[in-house]
Amino acid sequence: MLGRTANGLFWMYRYLERAENTSRLIETGQRIALTRLRTSDEEWRSVMQTAAVCDGYDLTHDEVTKDSAIDWMLRSKENTSSVMSAITAARQNARSVRTALTSELWEAMNAAYMTTSRRLSRKVPERDLPDLLKALRHSTALVRGMTHGTMLRNDIYDFSRIGTFLERADNTARILDVKYYVLLPSLSAVGSSIDNVQWETILRSVSGRGGFRMTYGSMPQARDVACYLILDGRMPRSIAFSTGKIRDNLEYLSIDYGIQPPSLELARGLSDACASTSIEEIFHTGLHEYLQTTLFRLSALGKQIERDFRFYN
């Protein structure tokens, strides 16, 4: 496969996953605000920090307000990670690799773009936000469903999966990291009903509430939630699950191409680290330090994949 085709597939699915993750974070911000006794627009800064879009916002805005933060994350063309920017970039990459996609998949991607463009053509009233966010997730889920249901399991599929799960692992790590150091109102709230409600909100943001309750029960505790979202290989948005899928698809590419790329060793290292580490070891080392190291390793892996498969040649 040509490097530019691999690049188009990889980034199409990264941007698609990013759009969905951003819509989930906005919904999370709305839910967390409902758990506060005293709400402040400034709390939306934490949501933007999770999405890594806070610096860009500060360059173009004098203060943080709820409306402007939501609009920045949903519609802003200046924000390259906004839902609209991400869906647009996903479609542009899909067009560049159109011949590698099935007609059903292309139609789903195009429909997602047109629906998003129409619904985000103007500022979204708060009363319409829940329906909009649900529609955005349904659109991206349809693209993902068409991928699973119609695509041949070859290198095209492998690059799409690698892009999806690299973005997903990064997002889960960011959500957990910011929850500990920004979202919690004070140390006195640790273990309180407010803390538990916020942990449940975080689980909702990654569609993990139902699975968590099956595994740990109905009262979320910090250690259990962290274990579930980092180490549980059954949870499809956990770091362990995501890094395992990246490793698997890189191994398929290694077999198909007859090579042993350095990115495969990096992916194996990440996946093995999840398999061999306990939540007690993570908390002993420091959750923040562990997650920051994971984010650094994910970034390095993404750059190494680009080099190994000559994305820009």
Results as ranks from 00 to 15, higher is better:
L187E: 04
A273C: 05
S263V: 04
D158L: 14
W106Q: 07
A222V: 11
D232V: 01
C274D: 00
F159I: 05
A112P: 03
A51S: 12
L301Y: 12
E200I: 08
D128Y: 08
G191N: 11
S242E: 05
G217L: 06
N154W: 13
S242C: 14
E289L: 10
L142Q: 13
A189T: 04
G163M: 12
G145M: 08
L298D: 01
Y180D: 02
S218D: 14
R95Y: 13
A240S: 10
I259N: 08
Y180A: 02
I87D: 00
F212K: 05
G191I: 14
L176F: 15
A19W: 06
S82N: 07
P125K: 10
G56M: 02
S40R: 09
K179D: 03
D62Q: 10
P236L: 14
R95L: 14
S193F: 11
L203D: 08
G8V: 01
T116P: 01
R91V: 02
L152E: 12
T293Q: 10
T277W: 02
R31H: 08
W44N: 02
N313S: 14
P125H: 09
R122E: 09
V143Q: 05
Y290C: 05
M48Q: 02
Q49L: 11
L166T: 12
L298K: 03
N171R: 11
K77N: 07
D41G: 14
E17F: 10
S205M: 07
S85W: 03
C227V: 05
R310N: 13
M109N: 04
R204M: 14
V64N: 02
Y257Q: 04
L132T: 06
A90L: 03
Y181V: 04
R310G: 07
R45V: 08
D232N: 09
Y15K: 09
V225D: 03
P236S: 13
R95P: 01
K134T: 10
I87F: 04
L136E: 03
L298E: 01
L287S: 01
T39G: 06
R234C: 01
N171M: 15
H288L: 08
S82D: 06
Y13N: 12
T215I: 14
M48P: 00
S299H: 14
T35A: 05
A90S: 12
V64K: 02
R310C: 12
A240Q: 03
S76G: 03
R174E: 14
D128P: 00
